[in-house]
Nucleic acid binder design. Structure first.
Lengths: 238, 238
DNA sequence: ACATGATGTGAGCAATAGCTCATGTTTGCT
DNA sequence: AGCAAACATGAGCTATTGCTCACATCATGT
């Protein structure tokens, strides 16, 4: 209600003792819990404090305001998903093409499976938490697009594979497609997701699109070769 | 804040006179305006009334509560987009395959261009408005998937085209892909959207995926034939 | 043992939200 | 013209929110 007021003095402490670290973690867990259970509207700071078994004062000891509290939660969740993604990307990039796509898809599914319920609420209500967390998500997505684009460029140079001309659009479409499909499937179409054909088809779709050769006829075509590529730029340490 | 209270008596009027119809329209316009300008959190009923140049009382004359107000706005917007979509679908279905896909993509872009700013806020904050409007959006999407699936089934029967085996997944992927790509492009990647290659590539992707023939080599392949198909089921009159 | 800063508490305040209702104004009908 | 119903008003009520601050407790070094 009163998010507009300028902070007079930074009264916010950083946790220095173990006890405090624990409190911060408890608060964030409670935030996630209440958010998932009651939705953003009902997730008042008082309620969160109650759930955490902590006084409201403690929350404002470590977070300047409600927005920062939710921001921290978002940041945490993004880093978790990002961790899953990045840790898989390393060997994704060294695989032959169709397998790399499959690994990419599987990584995306795993990343979305970290905490689906929280992920859902976060995605659905992210902008309400301020513009910063939303920007962070776009950063991650932009990173992915850049990565894929670079990967495709390397592929085009070092192999005989025929790729789309407009790699900007191609990378955007590939990432958007995989992200959207896994996102929607994990959140709303668990039965489709459970079918083996789901991953197969999604991989098939992306491979068929990116590969303009008779090599695309069989996903297992041994035409593609391995390519190393630089890791995605990090904005800060995880 | 006080959405939980049970309605004692339906005090809500239906607009019968022209003046009232105008008031309702003014209120909804103001709701959209404030929502886009200030975001959902700041979009209080008092503020909306002020913007509309109408007293708060008037709002509660036609909407039982804030949720219903936003619900009505969502309903309106959905019907508008749906109108654009459905009106294009008629001739989409009578076209040869690759052209049908292109028309479908263009229709989706047009639908998202109805009121992008409002669409954005609505999408981003929809769930907060209650579960009903969100369900309506899913209905529309589910309709699209069903429609595409039926279309594909007819295609498979009446032509020699080779399609994916799992039509459920195929239809889901096709709709999700086109929806997500156009949605993200319209909202966040206007520069990509502006390139001619955007539509070309998106169409190409879907066509290549759905068509497992040498017929897919050239999007303009004259192999595909026209097929008529029933219109999407409506839930209520527009 | 004691001092000092880090940590934790919770009653309560100012602001604002959604919403009501007593009252006034306009419209349509005879 | 006159009347009833539809329409419109807005001061103000209550609930609740985000947040403060004076104070208590704990952890640690000396």
């Amino acid at each position: 209600m009163r998010l507009a007021r300028k902070p007079k003095i930074s009264r916010v402490r950083k946790a220095r003792q173990d006890r405090a670290l624990g409190t911060v973690d408890t608060i964030l867990r409670a935030t996630a819990h209440v958010l998932v259970r009651d939705g953003y509207d009902k997730a008042s700071t008082n309620r969160i404090a109650e759930r955490a078994g902590v006084s409201i004062g403690s929350i404002y000891q470590y977070f300047p305001n409600k927005e920062a509290l939710f921001g921290a939660l978002v940041e945490r969740h993004i880093e978790e998903m990002r961790g899953v993604l990045v840790s898989t990307f390393a060997d994704v990039l060294s695989k032959p093409f169709p397998e790399a796509v499959r690994a990419f898809v599987l990584a995306m599914i795993r990343a979305h499976a970290v905490d689906p319920a929280l992920h859902r609420v976060l995605i659905e209500q992210l902008p309400r938490v301020g513009s910063l967390p939303l920007a962070r998500v776009r950063d991650v997505e932009a990173d992915a697009v850049t990565l894929v684009k670079t990967y495709l460029a390397h592929l085009a140079e070092s192999t005989s594979l025929v790729l789309p001309k407009d790699l900007d659009v191609a990378a955007f479409l590939a990432v958007t497609t995989v992200e959207a499909a896994t996102h929607k499937a994990v959140l709303h179409e668990r039965d489709l997701l459970a079918r083996p054909s789901f991953v197969d088809e999604l991989v098939d779709m992306v491979v068929r699109y990116l590969l303009r050769d008779e090599a695309a006829e069989k996903p297992r075509a041994p035409t593609a070769t391995a390519t190393k590529i630089s890791a995605p730029r990090r904005r800060r340490a995880s």
